[in-house]
Design a protein around this nucleic acid. Structure first.
Lengths: 364, 364
DNA sequence: TCGAGTTAGTAAATCGTTACACCACTTCCG
DNA sequence: CGGAAGTGGTGTAACGATTTACTAACTCGA
C-alpha cells in the first residue's frame, strides 16, 4: 500500500511515464491497443492512484469544489450541503465546506482562499446583491455558481446562478392565505437586505394588491436588522416576531408569511408562549419545506424548493469546463417553487379581537 | 494578484528561497532579526501565500481534515459539522465534507481516499463496532478521531475517540421518566447495531432495573433493522414505531425513550396521526437536544450532547502533531450528557386503557 | 529509391516548496 | 596560533505528474 507512482506503473508496463500519463488523460488514441492494455493492467495490479498534489501543482486546479453556505447548522443548508456532496461524488469531486455565517467579510475570505487553493469551482450561497467584493477572483477565471441568489444586472458575465423564482414563491404563499379568506397577513423576516428576501416580499405584495387589498395595511415585521443569523437565530427571529405582533397595540394579523421555515417554526413557538394555537388562531406558512415542516405539530404549510434538482444543477455548472471569465455567457436558472399545503394554514376563525387579547393576557 | 512564489519573495528580500522557507516554517532563529524582518516585509508587500499543492507534494500532507458524517442533512450532524468547520478555521484548517449515509462501504472508501489525498486527520462519525475495515490506513499513520463512538477494546492504539457517555445518557433518560412515575416505558430505535445505541440501551436498562422493574416488561421497538437512515429516515422510524406501538394489541407504554431527537420528533408526529397528545397521553424524551427540540410543540425533553465542546476536542485531536500510529497512546474522551427537561415529559395521566383505544379508533 | 507523412512513443523541463548538505566567516579556547 | 564550534546563511535535489518537442520506425506514392 506504499504509494505507487506513475513511474512504477510505467516500468511495470514497459513504457515511459509520459505514455501512462496519456492514458490517464484520455489520450489513448496515441498508442496501439496492446500498449494501452498493458498500462491498464499495470494500473489495476499496482492499485495506482494519481497523486492529487502533483497534478494540481502541474495543472493549477483540483477536482475539489468549494461550498460556501451561511451555516450547515441550519437544516435547510444542511440538506442542501448533503445533496451537493452526493452530486459531487457522482461527478468525481470533493467538497470543501465553509460556513460564512452570513458575514460578507468571511464570504470574501473564503472565496479568495478557495480560489488560491485551486478549487475547480465555487458554489456560493450568498444573499448579497453585488458580487463586486469578489470580482477580482472572478476575473481571474473562477467558475462561480451562486445559489439562492438569482443573477443581478451588474454581475460578471461568467457567473452562473441557480435559484428558485422567489417572486413566485412569495406570490404563492400570499395567494394561498388570501384564498383561505385571510385579509390581515403579516410578512415576517429577519432582514430584507438580501435579493431573494426582497423578491419574496415583492411576490407577496403582488398577490395582496391583485386581491384588491392594500399592502400598507398589512403588519410587517423585520426586526433584528443587523443581527447575523444562522440556525438558532432564524428561529429566534420568528419567536420575537410573534411576541411583538401579538402583544403590541397594533392590529393583529390572522395569518403570517414567514421568510423561511426556521423563522416560521420560531414563530409557532412564540405563539405557543402566548397561548395561541397555530392553524386555529393564526395561520402560518413557511418557506423552503425542510424535513421538519412535515414533522411539526401541526404540520407546516410551506413553499418547497426543489433542493435535489437545484443541487444537481449547481454542481454541473461548478464542474463544467467551459466556464470561467471570458468564455461562455453565464446562465441563470430559475426553478419554480411549489406550494405544499399542510395544516398550519386554515380559513380564519370567526372571532372577535377580544378572544385573542384574553388568551394573551392569560399567558402572561 | 498573479500568483507570487517563494522565489519572488526571496528576490525581493535579497535572500534565498531556503531562508524564506525557514521563516515560513518557524525556523526564524536561524537568521539575524534584520533578515527576518526583510522577509516578513516582502511577504506582506507581495501578498505572498504559500502554494498548498507544492507544499503537499513536498511534505505529503495538507492542513485539510476530513469529516465523515452519516448525513449533514440530519440537523444534529449539520450542527456538528458547523462546529467542526468553525473549529477548523480557528486551527487554520479546511474541512472536506463526506456523507457516509451510514454505509460501511462508503465510509471505508471515503477514509481511504481522504488519506491518499493527504488529509492531516479524519474525524469519523461512525457507529461501527470494529475499525478493522480501515486498519490498513490507520497503520500507515492516519490520525483518526472517532466521534459518537467511544473507544473499543480492539481499536488500534493511535485512535482517539470523542463521545458522550451514552450509558449515562440512557440512564438519565429512563430515570427522568421513572421519577415522573412512569412504569411502562418503551425504547424506540431504528437499529441497535451501533455501539452508542447499545450503550444507551444498557443505560436505559440499568435505570429500569434499579427502580425494581423488569426490562422484559417494557415494550421495545427496533424495526427497520436493515434500513439505512439519514435525516428523513430517522423521523420515519419514529413515526412507524408510534403506529406499531399504539395500534397493536400489546400493552401500550405511557412513556418513550427515543434513540435521538429526529426519531422522537417522528414519534410525536406518529402520535398526532393517531390523535394522541404528546406529553398528555404519552411522554417522550429524545436524545441530542437539537435546536428543533426547543422549537417543537410541545418542546421536547432531551438528553443534550455538548456539541461545541466535543467539536473543539475532536478538532484538536485531528490536527495534533503527536498522533499517528506508534507514537502516543490514543485517548478516549467521554463527556457527560445533560438532561434538559421541557414539556414533552409529564407524570402519567390517571386514565384507563379505554380512552387511548378510543382515541385511536377515532383517528383511523 | 527518395522524401514526405504518419504512428507510437520518449526525454526533459516544469510546477512551488522544502530538507539536507554544505560553505564562508567569526569566535573561542587551550 | 591552530582547530573546533557556532553563526547565518545558500545550492540543489527531490516530491509526482504533465506537456512540449523530438525521434525512431514505418508507410506510401511518384
Amino acid at each position: 500500500m506504499a504509494k505507487v507512482t506513475i513511474q512504477q506503473v510505467a516500468k511495470a508496463a514497459g513504457v515511459s511515464a509520459s505514455t501512462v500519463s496519456n492514458v490517464l488523460n484520455g489520450r489513448s488514441d496515441r498508442m496501439v491497443q496492446a500498449t494501452r492494455e498493458r498500462i491498464d493492467k499495470a494500473i489495476a495490479e499496482l492499485g495506482y492512484r494519481p497523486n492529487r498534489a502533483a497534478r494540481q501543482l502541474r495543472n493549477g486546479r483540483t477536482q475539489t469544489i468549494g461550498l460556501v453556505v451561511p451555516s450547515v447548522g441550519n437544516p435547510f443548508w444542511g440538506a442542501f450541503a448533503r445533496e451537493i456532496e452526493l452530486a459531487a461524488v457522482a461527478a468525481g469531486s470533493s467538497v470543501l465546506l465553509c460556513n460564512s455565517e452570513r458575514d460578507p467579510d468571511r464570504e470574501r475570505r473564503y472565496v479568495e482562499e478557495l480560489w488560491e487553493d485551486g478549487v475547480r469551482g465555487i458554489i456560493l450561497c450568498t444573499s448579497l446583491a453585488s458580487l463586486d467584493y469578489i470580482s477580482n477572483v472572478i476575473d481571474e477565471g473562477l467558475q462561480l455558481v451562486t445559489f439562492d441568489r438569482p443573477a443581478q444586472p451588474g454581475d460578471p458575465e461568467s457567473v452562473v446562478s441557480v435559484s428558485i423564482d422567489n417572486h413566485v414563491g412569495g406570490y404563492l404563499a400570499a395567494s394561498h392565505l388570501l384564498e383561505l379568506g385571510h385579509t390581515q397577513i403579516a410578512f415576517v423576516s429577519g432582514s430584507i437586505q438580501s435579493v431573494n428576501r426582497a423578491a419574496r416580499y415583492r411576490g407577496f405584495c403582488s398577490a395582496i394588491e391583485e386581491a384588491g387589498l392594500d399592502v400598507s395595511d398589512m403588519p410587517m415585521w423585520t426586526g433584528f436588522e443587523t443581527l447575523p443569523f444562522g440556525d438558532v437565530e432564524a428561529a429566534e427571529v420568528g419567536r420575537k416576531a410573534a411576541h411583538d405582533l401579538f402583544t403590541g397595540d397594533a392590529a393583529r394579523p390572522t395569518a403570517v408569511v414567514a421568510i423561511n421555515d426556521m423563522t416560521a417554526l420560531g414563530f409557532c413557538r412564540g405563539l405557543r408562549d402566548l397561548g395561541l394555537k397555530v392553524g386555529e388562531d393564526v395561520s402560518i406558512i413557511g418557506f423552503d419545506d425542510i424535513v421538519l415542516a412535515d414533522l411539526y405539530d401541526p404540520p407546516l404549510t410551506s413553499i418547497r424548493q426543489p433542493i435535489k434538482r437545484m443541487a444537481t444543477l449547481a454542481m454541473e455548472e461548478a464542474v463544467s469546463q467551459d466556464g470561467g471569465a471570458g468564455s461562455e455567457v453565464g446562465r441563470s436558472v430559475l426553478l419554480r417553487p411549489q406550494l405544499v399545503v399542510r395544516e398550519s394554514t386554515r380559513p380564519p376563525k370567526a372571532r372577535n379581537e377580544h378572544e385573542v387579547a384574553n388568551a394573551v393576557e392569560g399567558a402572561r
